[in-house]
Structures are given as C-alpha cells and as structure tokens.
Amino acid sequence: MIEINELRKSFDAQQVLRGVSFSIADGETVAIIGQSGCGKSVLLKHIIGLLQPDSGSVVVDGHNIATASEEQIYALRRKIGFLFQSAALFDSMTVFENIVLGLWEHGEREEAKLRHIAEEKLSMVGLRGILDQKPASLSGGMRKRVGLARALAMNPKYLFYDEPTTGLDPVTSDQIDDLILSVTKQYQATNLIITHDMFTVQRIAKRVIFLSNGLVYFDGTPQELENSIDPIVQQFIERFGKR
C-alpha cells in the first residue's frame, strides 16, 4: 500500500508539490495525469525514494521513505518495477544483461536460469531473438518493451510507468497500451501510470488522479473524469484526448 500525506516539494523558488495526499491500495491500477511540469514525475520519484520531501510523508508498505535507511529503501525498490519515459536501458549492456541485471545483482548467478527468465520476459512483451543486441540497435517501441521486460524481471509487487506512450506513434502507443493491459492481467501488481495520454487512461486505469498546480485536483474513475464539467478538467481532456 502507498500512502502519501501532505507531500510538499520545491526546487529553488519553484514549489512543485503543495501538499499532495492520496493512498493507493494493493492491486489498484491508478493513472496520474496533469500537464507537463505539474509534478507527476517528481511525485513518482518520491515514491521510490529518489527524492526526499520538504515536508509530508510517503509511506510504502509501512516504511516512511523519508526516514527509512538506505538498505530499507533498496529492499523496497526490489519490489518495484519501473518503466522509464526514455526506457533508460543501459547502453553498454546487451538486452539480456539489461533484463537480468537486477536479478544478477541480488544473487541469481545461474546463467541458464537467467537466460530462461530473460527469454520469458522478452516474449511476454512480444519480442524474440534480440537478447544479444545492444539497445542502440532497437527502435523506440522496442526499447520501451525491453524496459518493460526489465521491470518485470524481478516479479514486482508494484509496477510504475512513467509516460509509457510519450514520443511513440499512435500505432506503437496502442501496442504499448495493449502490453500494459496484458501485463496488468497477468501480474497481480499495483500499477501506477504517469501519463497525459487520455487514451491510455481510458483503456487501462481504474482510477485517475489529476494533479494541477501542485495539488490533487480530481480523484475518481476515468468515467467520472470524462463526465466532469469542471472547465480545467475539460480543457485537459480536450487537449490530451487526441493521439
């Protein structure tokens, strides 16, 4: 379970989060939406302990991220699979090494087993036969898929997606959405999707949190969001409802 209470964060004079509060129960699939710069990614980085709050708290599985030790935070991160906006594949490593790095670092050293896991996760995201390629030789969509395979490698309890369809063409974006849906069905993970793509929200999310001006502006189902008559919500839907 993730609990966020009165989270505030500023960078120099710019206040990005002004007291964000919400909680996410185990197994939920939640989309966090909002305009660029509204603090979506900053919020996500607080949840995995990459940023420390100025005030307020982020509690994941009972551990307060602000007060947890480095070991506790690293242990917590092993439960989290993270698909980065840019996929963030390690470009000095092959696809195989990228996928199994987490497992290798946390003690799994049997080559045959690692290879089997890498092939399994790769086929789960619809790719085959690229284990020995370097990320530089892959397309944007393939990189995202490999990034997702890496996120799935440690069978995470939580799956975080940071702008999974940004920078992709509409067809590839649909494929990534399908993939997230299929992964959501296969894994009983808690899914948190940062996006401003309303298609992704409508297809995947069961709950939507709309951040505006550093605060939670809307919290409800995608249907409630769609039916909202609030002008700010409507403006956002009109702006980002197209691919």
């Binding site: 990459l50 980065f84 390690f90 790095l101 670092e105 946390h106």
Partner: peptide, 16 residues
C-alpha cells in the same frame, strides 16, 4: 547515464 535516467534506473533496480 545521469541525463538518460540510467542512474535512476539503477536505483530503481535496488542497486546503489
């Protein structure tokens, strides 16, 4: 690695 989020990716895998 820092500007392409690879450092964050390492952290997210629980690797210091």
């Amino acid at each position: 690695m820092k500007v392409t989020e690879q450092i964050d990716a390492l952290e997210s895998l629980g690797i210091s």
